[in-house]
Amino acid sequence: MAAGGDHGSPDSYRSPLASRYASPEMCFVFSDRYKFRTWRQLWLWLAEAEQTLGLPITDEQIQEMKSNLENIDFKMAAEEEKRLRHDVMAHVHTFGHCCPKAAGIIHLGATSCYVGDNTDLIILRNALDLLLPKLARVISRLADFAKERASLPTLGFTHFQPAQLTTVGKRCCLWIQDLCMDLQNLKRVRDDLRFRGVKGTTGTQASFLQLFEGDDHKVEQLDKMVTEKAGFKRAFIITGQTYTRKVDIEVLSVLASLGASVHKICTDIRLLANLKEMEEPFEKQQIGSSAMPYKRNPMRSERCCSLARHLMTLVMDPLQTASVQWFERTLDDSANRRICLAEAFLTADTILNTLQNISEGLVVYPKVIERRIRQELPFMATENIIMAMVKAGGSRQDCHEKIRVLSQQAASVVKQEGGDNDLIERIQVDAYFSPIHSQLDHLLDPSSFTGRASQQVQRFLEEEVYPLLKPYESVMKVKAELCL
């Protein structure tokens, strides 16, 4: 049975990233139509530049190519590739079939990587351009969430054990800070992308030097003109047959890092959902379990974690691919890159769409948070109580021993009897502590235990987050809708 299948058929496997999760716009960027249309555009740009620099290419040939950029006979191309065992030459023939007058000058002087690699770089750039505003929107939604809850005390956790208090907004800023680093890295790697350009079979530009009869300047002009037509500021000066596969490492490393950030955020949300302090959106008709109707599973956060793990592992592909590119190139890269580049971007696209949807509907339960604080705060307040007693004339050592005994009794009630923490009640009825009984409410005010959390939130948002989001103001209103 021949390899390949009808990918629109229910009898043929289709990647869930495309069929179930990723956005239509990201799927289109990695589609065959987008790819092969870009090949034709690159052939047109090459012909236009070659004509401008004096090669015998007519206006009629150029116009014929322009008129057929979208006229792609995919069936013919597939048949040609089956016959020739070469995808680029299959599309040269297919393009030439609908451009008979231009057929002889299509791909003039070029090698397969002229269309293959340059198209990949265009796709990487455009895919990054799709991700950047999506990530900015996630940051914006979380920034709104953090600002609104900047002063809401909550129990902090280290080692997932109760620690000092923080605020809900401050905790959210930990998430935002990681995503801001990801946004900066995505922008950097996007701006650092260079075009492969017009380089020939081993990167020496020998074929173009021959076409222009040894004119170095025209060869350099050709490279520059096509690079500018493709919208790049610069091209690699040095290439082998391909652009260095280190570029793929750079791009997928940034995406993998984004995956790590999203995994951490969504894990926190899942843990908070278990504590009943916070939940992701839950639709009115949504079913959490087929057997347990009360369940409210954090399905979206779980999906993000599941896909983020996949995204983090994909960076190993370009690392290994770059390491086995012998001399000017081997074909070890080809099949692998067809999979890992598309999957990385479709996965990143999915987790950003999902995280935006989550961040637009996060639900906080202040009463649950308050109750958990009441359970733990008495123990945390013991040092403040000791200091207040010393100020009232008591002995630190005597007070410490009193607190120690009462704390152990209260802990026994919590752990052995399943009761509430009654340390404060014990202190309130103990005559030894009568000098500070009137101060206990103040000493137990949760806001006095959150330090500068709310001020940190305000400063972080104003100095770091809002300036970073400013270039994306025009796209901030787009909502994230999930079908599944």
Rank of each mutant, 00 (worst) to 15 (best):
A3M: 15
A3H: 14
H7C: 11
G8Y: 15
G8C: 13
S9P: 11
Y13T: 11
L17M: 13
Y21K: 14
A22K: 12
P24T: 14
S31E: 11
F36P: 14
Q41R: 08
W43G: 06
A47V: 08
E50A: 02
T52I: 04
G54E: 03
T58F: 07
T58N: 10
E60P: 07
Q61T: 13
E64D: 04
S67V: 05
I72W: 13
D73I: 05
D73L: 03
F74S: 07
F74V: 09
K75H: 05
M76A: 05
A77V: 06
R85Y: 04
H91M: 11
V92N: 10
C98S: 04
K101W: 06
I105S: 04
I105A: 00
I106Q: 10
I106F: 05
H107D: 05
L108Y: 12
V115L: 10
D117G: 06
D120V: 06
I123S: 05
L128F: 13
L130T: 14
L131Y: 11
L131W: 12
L135P: 07
R137N: 13
R137Y: 01
L142F: 07
D144R: 08
F145E: 04
S151G: 07
P153K: 10
L155W: 01
G156S: 08
Q161R: 06
P162E: 09
A163W: 03
Q164H: 03
Q164N: 12
V168W: 03
V168S: 06
G169I: 04
G169K: 08
R171S: 04
R171Y: 00
C172E: 01
C172R: 10
L174V: 04
L174R: 10
W175C: 05
W175M: 02
N185Q: 10
R188K: 06
R190V: 13
L193F: 06
R196I: 02
G197Q: 14
G197R: 05
G200M: 07
G200R: 08
T201S: 03
S207H: 00
F212C: 04
E213Q: 13
D215W: 05
D216K: 02
V219M: 14
Q221N: 13
K224Y: 14
M225G: 03
V226G: 11
F232V: 09
F236R: 10
Q241E: 02
R245E: 06
R245A: 09
K246S: 09
D248N: 01
I249A: 04
L258C: 09
G259L: 13
H263A: 12
K264L: 14
N274I: 03
L275V: 11
E279A: 01
E279L: 07
P281H: 13
P281M: 12
Q285K: 13
S289P: 06
M292W: 06
K295V: 09
K295W: 14
M299D: 06
C305S: 08
L307S: 09
A308I: 08
H310Q: 12
M312T: 12
L314E: 10
D317H: 03
L319G: 10
S323D: 15
Q325C: 10
W326E: 11
E328Q: 00
S334V: 08
S334I: 00
A335P: 11
N336V: 04
L341A: 11
E343T: 14
T350S: 09
L355W: 14
E376K: 01
P378Q: 14
F379S: 10
N384Q: 12
A388S: 01
M389A: 00
K391T: 11
G393D: 15
S395Y: 10
D398F: 01
I403G: 08
R404D: 09
Q408W: 05
Q409G: 06
Q409C: 15
V413I: 12
L423W: 11
E425G: 11
V429F: 15
F433K: 08
S438V: 14
S438R: 03
L444R: 11
D445E: 00
T450S: 01
A453C: 07
A453M: 11
S454W: 02
Q456P: 14
V457L: 03
E463C: 04
L468D: 03
L468W: 07
P471I: 15
E473P: 15
V475H: 14
M476W: 02
L484K: 04
